[in-house]
Design a protein around this nucleic acid. Structure first.
Lengths: 191, 191
DNA sequence: CGTCTATTTGAATGTACTCAAAAGCGGTGG
DNA sequence: CCACCGCTTTTGAGTACATTCAAATAGACG
């Protein structure tokens, strides 16, 4: 099992060597090049992705053609379209790589089997889902209650390592402003 | 076990009579009057709440004193401050009743025991958490990509029964505009 | 070096907010 | 049963935050 995945799992549950080995047989290593898609809107998201290297993003495109980034996934994070994955419906999101990335891919059907073999995994994914809820909730509160500049400062505080590797445009999309406006805010701030 | 709770659980997992009975011993019935708090910012959220009658809401108050509604909980819904509940940290949210309501209260420690007695419950709460993620994600996309009037129309489509019993002010807070602006939008729309 | 994309800057515009005040509505007590 | 109080909703005028459109500049990559 990939050390990053192992470390990730160990943070929440305890698996025996056997269980770990059993688990790891279902994760398929995958490499995805910069700008290549892992998922496109309308497709069915048939598996979950654990990032080991690089960085992915998920985003929606609105009817005016603008991208709205939902999530960045650096190493150690999961990414997927939860709606499409759990209900096997057409995805609302695109997922692509911002740079060449290495992934571990877990098929939905394999995960369902794993839940039966290792009930602890239900617990793991319950906790991961709860953490995700907390993150979404905080972001929602930010969006509802803060002006753009504070949302930006928030982002920098929360993801200091991401700020360094992301183009400004991507950050603008995440915090919910146009790239032009983010640029103007930053030039104001520098004064 | 309360029929609404039973029906709710049955939608996702299958419990034996015994398991159901065991479960239900931990749910404490509770009545909360209009405008009374179930949780206040800064307190620790020590349990989860399943609503059987009435309606609750959770909301954050920003530094300017404005409320931002995170969730409404009509009968059949859970409500709580996930961050405070799972990490036993001070809550960021207030939860109160919009009208006199009846609840079933489940203590965190009891839930932890229940997870051990009935591992299926890990599954139940995993699925509930995943559904919650999907809801938050859709709302985030709405907030990022739609003007206020469309967010309102969205809300009406998604929660037709809520629209009828909620004062306009509460809906405004949920979709993220001032009550004045919602009023202006609606009077425009009527023309 | 040339092309493509990201960033910056400026002017005009628009969506939504603030402040203020009037009107409507529901509940309560005399 | 009506009058009053408090809260919600409406309306208007002025303002601010953020967008759009446009164009120039800067950076990255083959």
């Amino acid at each position: 099992m990939h050390p990053l995945l192992r470390q990730h799992i160990d943070r929440y549950i305890t698996l025996s060597e056997q269980e770990q080995d059993h688990c790891s047989t279902f994760f398929q290593p995958l490499v995805i090049k910069k700008k290549h898609y892992l998922l496109q809107e309308g497709a069915i998201n048939k598996g979950l992705t654990f990032v080991t290297d690089g960085i992915l993003r998920s985003y929606a495109i609105d009817k005016n053609g603008f991208e709205h980034i939902i999530q960045f996934a650096p190493p150690g994070w999961w990414i997927g379209d939860m709606g499409s994955f759990t209900r096997q419906e057409p995805a609302k999101l695109f997922i692509d790589a911002l740079e060449e990335s290495k992934l571990l891919w877990l098929e939905r059907s394999d995960l369902e089997h794993l839940y039966k073999d290792i009930p602890q995994l239900e617990r793991l994914f319950r906790i991961l889902a709860e953490n995700s809820i907390i993150t979404y909730q905080n972001r929602l509160i930010s969006n509802l209650s803060m002006p753009a500049i504070e949302r930006y400062e928030n982002f920098c505080r929360q993801y200091p390592s991401l700020i360094q590797c992301l183009p400004q445009k991507q950050v603008a999309s995440y915090i919910g402003v146009t790239p032009q406006f983010l640029s103007k805010m930053l030039s104001e701030q520098r004064k």
